[in-house]
Design a protein around this nucleic acid. Structure first.
Lengths: 103, 103
DNA sequence: TTTATCTTGACAATAAGTGTCAAATATAAT
DNA sequence: ATTATATTTGACACTTATTGTCAAGATAAA
């Protein structure tokens, strides 16, 4: 069982597959090369807007990339929490419940 | 099926059950009354430390209160996201997976 | 060794979070 | 109705995170 890829790893892989330079992609995102470099190496988080643009630029499935990105964000939120796993389950329960009642 | 309580609602209920004033509990937390008022009404979020202290002050089960608090925080993170539910499930998967491999 | 790419760290600007304070409202007791 | 107490509200200040630029240093390709 090999470790699942981080968002950054996915982005770097796809950029390189396409033979694009940091400089080029960063320009399309309208940010400095340094930031994209950091995003790809996981040193910074991308914004939602940047993720959407990146999916388009790199021709990745947008929904899949967003889910990947959001789940990483959620895990980051509870990374130091002993009760993280329980909290996740509780969140799912509440979400399920709310959907029932709002629809 | 009635709506599940928010953290703020729980805190207010328990404080009132104990006959404590905002002023008193706020003093124990070393914050202004105004903030506690806002926390109870959901206008602001408590910090982790405050939640822990509140569990003690109000004699609530600490673990349960923390889970409640964290799950609310997680849901807040994805509240505007169409893909929130999928992201939650993905996060759980990753968490499961990581536990397998780190232990 | 030159040239292009990428990485790093110091810094700036802005946004978000966390608190105080005082005035306005609401609640309760005379 | 007045007074006293409790809570709420909003303006403000302070601190910390986030998001970016820039320039210098490291890496890799020619």
């Amino acid at each position: 069982m090999k470790k699942s890829k981080t968002t950054g790893e996915i982005l770097r892989e796809e950029r390189e597959k396409k033979g694009l330079l940091l400089r080029q992609v960063a320009a399309m995102l309208d940010i400095d090369t340094a930031i994209l470099s950091k995003i790809e190496r996981g040193e910074r988080k991308a914004s939602k807007e940047q993720i959407v643009k990146l999916a388009e630029i790199l021709e990745l499935d947008e929904e899949a990339l967003i889910v990947q990105y959001l789940s990483e964000k959620i895990l980051y939120e509870i990374k130091d929490e002993e009760l993280g796993s329980k909290a996740l389950k509780a969140a799912e329960q509440k979400m399920k419940y709310n959907n029932k009642n709002n629809s």
